[in-house]
């Protein structure tokens, strides 16, 4: 899986609106070589006059097969994400290149405890990792902390709830609107949240953090302050347009 081939043709198989700003897209890519949990791809769109645009997206699916799942958040001033969220329909064609990145990945040979921390659509590569953990029936201790603005902004909420068992715990942070009866007041993630709702330093977990730059900066800094070794914290950030 290490060699990145050229551009591969994909067809949109399904497009599902799952949040107010986002869709899940299932692409059928006949030549897809498969991917590790946590990897990303480049996606290329070509207009009829030849104009092209390319963006990187994390992959929610993993493993063999030619079905590739993405979850795309619409950026207000974007040119690619609004097309993917509003316009593209099953049967439309695009191109992908990948899989890319061999660092922010989880392999089912890993047995150590893992803490996943997602902000917003940063959940995508972590869903991939959580799915791989379940599919391998891994007994590695997993815990996920997912920060979203409001319940309706969460991707994969019911699927993630369904993964909860003895080896997978799930905790939520709501930054603007919490569900009725939720114990924690809505607000940005704090040191107290991380202390209360993630695996402790004593477990020596490998920590994967993905989200907007500001979120990842804040979380990674708290983790280091709590005593997690920097080399045990893997980050993936997105920002800009």
């Amino acid at each position: 899986m290490a060699i990145v081939a050229g551009w591969l043709v994909g067809t949109v198989a399904r497009a599902m609106r799952v949040t107010p700003q986002g869709r899940v897209l299932i692409l059928d890519v006949p030549e897809w070589p498969g991917n590790l949990a946590g990897q990303h791809l480049d996606l290329r769109l070509t207009a009829e006059d030849g104009y092209q645009a390319v963006r990187s997206y994390s992959i929610a699916s993993f493993g063999d097969g030619h079905s590739v799942e993405l979850a795309v958040d619409e950026l207000p001033d974007g040119e690619v994400s609004p097309y993917l969220v509003q316009d593209v329909e099953p049967g439309d064609m695009l191109e992908v290149r990948g899989p890319l990145g061999n660092f922010f990945v989880w392999r089912d040979s890993q047995t150590e405890p893992v803490q996943l921390i997602a902000g917003g659509s940063g959940i995508v590569p972590l869903v991939s990792i959580a799915r791989a953990h379940r599919a391998a029936a891994s007994t590695a201790k997993f815990r996920m902390l997912y920060s979203v603005r409001a319940p309706e902004d969460a991707y994969y909420a019911s699927e993630l709830e369904g993964l909860v068992d003895d080896s997978f715990a799930l905790d939520w942070v709501y930054t603007r609107t919490a569900p009725v009866g939720f114990a924690r007041t809505a607000g940005r993630i704090t040191r107290a949240d991380i202390e209360a709702s993630t695996l402790p330093v004593a477990d020596n977990p490998l920590v994967y953090v993905c989200g907007p730059t500001g979120f990842v900066e804040a979380v990674a800094r708290i983790l280091v302050d709590l005593g997690h070794p920097a080399e045990r914290i893997k980050t993936e950030r997105f920002g800009g347009s």
């Binding site: 551009w7 104009y51 609004p82 191109e95 347009s241």
Partner: peptide
């Protein structure tokens, strides 16, 4: 390349100072 139906309405101006496959940002990701 294959064409993506209906893509291109929100395109950004191309800039000869940009290397291939890059887009301009005013932020600093």
């Amino acid at each position: 390349a294959v064409f993506s139906r209906g893509f291109g309405a929100r395109r950004r101006e191309s800039d000869p100072e940009l290397p291939p496959g890059q887009y301009l940002t005013e932020d600093f990701p």
